[in-house]
Nucleic acid binder design. Sequence first.
DNA 1: TAGCCTTGGTAAAGCTGGTTGACTAGTTCG
DNA 2: CGAACTAGTCAACCAGCTTTACCAAGGCTA
Lengths: 151, 151
Amino acid sequence: MAGDLPALLATSFRAVMDRVHDQLAADGFADVRPAHGFVFQYLSLRGGATAVEIGEHLGITKQAAVQLVDELDRRGYVERRPHPSDGRSRVVTLAPRGWACVHRVVELWAGLERQWEDLLGTERLAQLRDDLGRLISATSGGRPVPLRPLW
Amino acid sequence: MAGDLPALLATSFRAVMDRVHDQLAADGFADVRPAHGFVFQYLSLRGGATAVEIGEHLGITKQAAVQLVDELDRRGYVERRPHPSDGRSRVVTLAPRGWACVHRVVELWAGLERQWEDLLGTERLAQLRDDLGRLISATSGGRPVPLRPLW
DNA sequence: TAGCCTTGGTAAAGCTGGTTGACTAGTTCG
DNA sequence: CGAACTAGTCAACCAGCTTTACCAAGGCTA
């Protein structure tokens, strides 16, 4: 059917997120939203980040990012310590509970991708990934695209 | 890169929606959100729907759906009339301004798909659509997946 | 090194788009 | 008929975000 790609993109995102959330909840991480998962992944790759950087990565204001980090801090997922050289800044890093969660998330994503690989085949999955990437850069005109879907 | 498909799905959705919204805003439909576009498409395909049906389609409660329809009514995009046989129900249909918008949305989506077809080729685009569909049904386990992404 | 702009974070108010719960009125079915 | 269900309404509430204003630390330039 023509004109259904937007709905397909929306639905596939939602399906994946629901699936991950359900399994995460079963492992005791019921209070984790998609946004948190993306923060964890970001922190695990970079080692640490400021609230402003997190905000830019997600596509929200720095105030909203700080608020989000506050919550993750309260729940023991991340810690904050003063920046070594910049007195204004505070560096956010993953706490043990955050690491536990990100490991689980990575496992779940990997598991899903294996499942899709069985379903589509290695080549088609690689093509899917590649095509989505090209579609994004062509559609966005090269500008950075926020992660957060706006509804 | 492994494990990036969730981000790819999120970003592609966002990129498409931003693009459509920008062009729509330039045509005088700046007050239309993605959710509205999906409602318009739904109504144009079915001819009409109740608030409850719209809510189910989007993945929100009936109260939220009514509220959304209220707003679209106030802005002249849809109209409501009593259901011919069911006295409780009110049928929502597209008003002229709604039709104008949905035609524009369809055009924009079609234009984007042509662009992607140039980019990926007809076959790859068809594969992309097909693969996303299979991915959705495999990941959701057959349950209906709400359109609305939750963040 | 003084002055000024920039940048990271904080504080508070407010808004948008939803949810939950309780209710009314019309419908369906045994 | 009466019980159970369904569409819509009303009102209270809430999460997550934005806006505006601010402060203190850093960087640049004369």
